[in-house]
């Protein structure tokens, strides 16, 4: 479990996080929704002690992240927004192996771990490819493998859907769906439609938590979302105006519309 208490953080004079309080339960998919510059990425960097709070604490499984960063980093894996920041080795194998190597794995164990992580994202055939020859979408998926190879209990994704085409977004979504239930997943995004797969969502803006609730509770408040410069997809607005639950995916949307039509035709 992650518990964030009264978290404050500043870059120089400008205060980015202004007293964040959050509890993220074990095994849940938690969404951080907010416009650009809301403080989402800064908050995520506190989760494994990469940034130290100015005030307040971040407790991960009973450990203070700022004081036990080494232990916490084994538990919390962060997938950065730009895969070029994450992938620094010449080949896929070397980059995916970097984390497990630092965990003490060597030889065949290390190779197995790398292959296992690549299999999870369906990219085992890329093991000897050079990173600079990969497309942006491929790099994004490999960036996920670099973290999965460390087998962390908590996975943090910073804008996982940013700059991807539809196919790329679906692939990342499928990977997250696959990991759901196995790990605690934290997703930071400003794309409302992709946060419907979360169990709970926190709306964050100007360094403060504005609202926390289920996707239905948060996304149904269209006025609030618009007030915080967030785009509400027409499909979600349609469902809300019909009084239906916000669907998690297209299949659920089809079922829901089907039920709605059959009930109303009677």
């Amino acid at each position: 479990m992650i518990e964030i208490k009264d978290l404050h953080f500043s870059y120089g004079e400008s205060e980015i996080l202004k007293g964040i309080n959050l509890k993220i339960r074990k095994g849940e998919v938690f969404g951080l929704l907010g416009p650009n510059g809301a403080g989402k990425s800064t908050l995520l960097l506190h989760l494994n002690g990469l940034l130290k709070p100015k005030r307040g604490t971040v407790i991960v499984d009973g450990l203070d992240a700022s004081k036990n960063s080494k232990e916490v980093r084994r538990k919390v894996g962060i997938v950065f927004q730009d895969p070029n920041d994450q992938l620094f080795s010449p080949t896929v194998f070397e980059d995916v192996a970097f984390g497990p190597y630092n965990l003490g794995l060597r030889g065949e164990d290390l190779k197995e771990r790398v292959l296992e992580a690549l299999k999870l994202i369906g990219m085992e055939s890329y093991i000897h490819r050079e990173i600079k020859h990969l497309s942006f979408g491929e790099k994004k998926r490999i960036a996920i493998a670099t973290v999965l190879a460390m087998k962390p209990g908590i996975l943090v994704f910073d804008e996982p859907f940013a700059n991807l085409d539809f196919k790329g977004k679906q692939m990342i979504r499928n990977i997250i769906e696959k990991l759901k239930g196995e790990k605690t997943i934290i997703l930071a995004s400003h794309e409302v439609e992709y946060l419907t797969l979360c169990d709970r969502i926190a709306l964050i803006d100007e360094g403060k938590i504005v609202k926390v609730g289920t996707p239905k509770q948060v996304l149904s408040d269209v006025k609030l979302l618009r007030k915080h410069n967030l785009d509400v997809p027409p499909l979600i607005e349609l469902f809300l105006s019909l009084g239906l639950e916000v669907p998690k995916d297209l299949e659920e949307a089809k079922k829901s519309i089907g039920n709605f039509l059959s009930q109303n035709s009677k």
């Binding site: 920041d85 970097f98 630092n102 460390m150």
Partner: peptide, 15 residues
């Protein structure tokens, strides 16, 4: 940013 990414993967030494 790269250094942060390395730290978050337990950077101690390079393979």
């Amino acid at each position: 940013k790269i250094y942060m990414s390395m730290l978050s993967r337990g950077f101690g030494e390079f393979p």
